[in-house]
């Protein structure tokens, strides 16, 4: 049984990042798109923690950065959900394909 090292964690975080990007680009439901963005942010958190633990164990920058990212992500999600609710009131749908008034 091998100890998980930096490469394993980087592999997971990169995979998570691209799953998030893929989800953001292919999903048509706004809430799911927001969830994909959360995946991206969490992959970044994993990255920071892994670098902090394995490469720069004497520093604290990565840990602090992670805490701030979590806080900001919550703020961003709050505003985004408020906007989505307002869009739903006007549009009766949170499907991106139905929000098509602005084009070209």
């Amino acid at each position: 049984m091998m100890e998980p090292g930096l490469y394993h964690i980087l592999f997971i975080s990169t995979a998570l990042f691209f799953i998030g990007v893929f989800g953001f680009l292919t999903r048509r439901n706004l809430i799911t798109m927001l969830m994909s963005i959360e995946l991206i942010l969490n992959s970044v958190n994993l990255n920071f923690i892994a670098f902090n633990k394995y490469v720069w164990p004497e520093k604290m920058d990565g840990l602090f950065f992670t805490i701030f990212i979590i806080a900001i992500a919550a703020a961003e999600a709050a505003v985004a959900i408020a906007i989505i609710i307002n869009l739903y009131r006007n549009n009766q749908s949170i499907d991106v394909n139905n929000a098509e008034e602005l084009k070209y």
């Binding site: 706004l30 963005i37 961003e76 985004a80 906007i83 989505i84 869009l87 929000a99 008034e101 602005l102």
Partner: peptide, 10 residues
């Protein structure tokens, strides 16, 4: 306005 804001935040 709602649609523009949605595009902006996302």
């Amino acid at each position: 306005s709602a649609e523009g804001a949605m595009k902006m935040i996302l």
